[in-house]
Amino acid sequence: MTLTCQLDPVLDDELRDGVLALWTDVSNAGGAVGFVPPVTADDVRPDLDRSLAAVEAGQRRLLVGRDEDGRIVATAFLTYNSHRLMAHWLWLYTVMIHPGRQGRGYGRSLMAAVEQAARGFHGIEAIRLTCRGGTGVDMFYATCGYKEVGRVPAAIRVAPGDDRDDIVMLLTL
């Protein structure tokens, strides 16, 4: 099974619905993508709308991964820095693989597509991301070449008494 990635897809209703369903499913499976389960599509929609508005405004780029049946099963948002002294690196946000597709190499394929896309952006020298501690995803990113460059202890409150570290990782291109 292969993942086909596309940078800057057409932002039509099919794409919006597909990314919304993915984001909701990933959140409800416990994925660290800005929510704590349970969530509905109505809970996620405002965040999706803001992200897609940033894409439409040219502040972000969207990378979508589709399975062999054309279903959206992966995404990543690449966000340019607006600060003039930091314009040489970009942020990577909302990296998602559908829970039912994990363990098939889709995550590694998506991260390779992210790196390839970033290498094609003029003046970009690194990719920076943050991830929630306690999920193990930092170990996955490390296998993709990212290095931990910072950690803020207990910065993310998942629930009362459940605080997680905010881990900052960097991939130099």
Rank of each mutant, 00 (worst) to 15 (best):
R101W: 08
S109F: 00
P99I: 08
A142F: 12
E125Q: 15
G107Q: 02
H122A: 15
Y146C: 02
G103D: 09
G107M: 03
L129M: 13
F77V: 08
T130G: 11
A113N: 08
Y141N: 14
G120E: 07
R84S: 07
M111F: 02
F140D: 05
A74L: 02
H88A: 06
G136M: 13
W91C: 09
V152T: 15
M169P: 06
F77D: 00
S109G: 10
T143W: 12
L90Y: 03
Q102T: 14
P160S: 07
F121P: 10
T135Y: 11
G133S: 09
C131G: 02
Y80C: 01
F77N: 01
A112K: 08
S82K: 04
Q116S: 14
R151L: 09
S82T: 08
Y141P: 12
Y141G: 12
S109M: 05
R108N: 02
R132K: 15
R84P: 08
T94N: 15
K147V: 15
E115W: 00
I167K: 04
H83D: 09
G105R: 05
Q116M: 08
L170S: 07
H122N: 13
V114C: 15
D166F: 07
G103P: 01
E125H: 08
S82W: 08
G133E: 05
Q116E: 14
E148H: 09
L78H: 06
L110G: 01
G145R: 11
P153F: 01
Q102W: 05
T75D: 00
R128S: 13
A154W: 00
A87T: 13
P99Y: 04
T130C: 08
W91Q: 09
D162L: 05
P99V: 03
A154D: 15
A126G: 05
T79F: 00
T135F: 10
P99S: 03
R128C: 13
G145I: 04
T143P: 09
S82Y: 10
M169W: 06
C144T: 11
M111L: 15
A155Y: 03
G123D: 14
C131Q: 08
G136Q: 10
R119G: 13
I167P: 07
T172M: 14
G150V: 01
G103E: 03
A126M: 11
G103I: 05
T130K: 11
H83L: 11
L171E: 07
L129G: 05
K147N: 14
G145T: 11
M139I: 13
M86Q: 14
R119F: 05
